[in-house]
Amino acid sequence: MNLIQNQILELLKKNARYSNGDISNMLNVSESVVETEIQGLIEHGIIRQFTTIINDNNIDDYPIRALVELSIRPEKGTGYDAIAQRIFSYDNVVSHYLVSGKYDFLLVVEGSDHKDIAHFVFDKLATIENVKSTTTHFIFKSYKEHGVLMEEAASSSRLAILP
């Protein structure tokens, strides 16, 4: 990646709603360069999606989430990837990582309520032959997502005018 692509990514990570014009002014490059670079980043699969960070702590009837740890017996030849595909293909698996440590897969699973998630874990995940064990952690509260605090900490406000 070149410097401009890097700087565009950093800006879009902070705010995906920056217009090409805003980015062009901030990086001192033309708007068409910004457009081309963003298109390139999308085509190369580096930008996967423009999305929104939501504070769901205070939203009633919002899907709940759990972290699910899975111990896996990998398969000869395909390792973890083939098993992963059987898991991440479910829509309610919103994130899926292969990690080091005591277990192998770490998932973020979404469901309408606790029962919904429990059912998914017992019925869909635990029954996969290569899944040796599961541990489920329901998320009670989210403090920070993708570098963004869910609740703005109180801080002193700046003087509105000062030389």
Binding site: S155, R158, L159, A160, I161, L162, P163
Partner: peptide
């Protein structure tokens, strides 16, 4: 003028003299 700014509500101030990062 400074007092006027300090007593104004709902303005956007570009008159600040310090960073906006904590």
């Amino acid at each position: 003028f400074f007092d006027l700014v300090l007593s104004s509500k709902g303005i956007i101030s570009l008159g600040v003299g310090e960073p906006d990062f904590l």
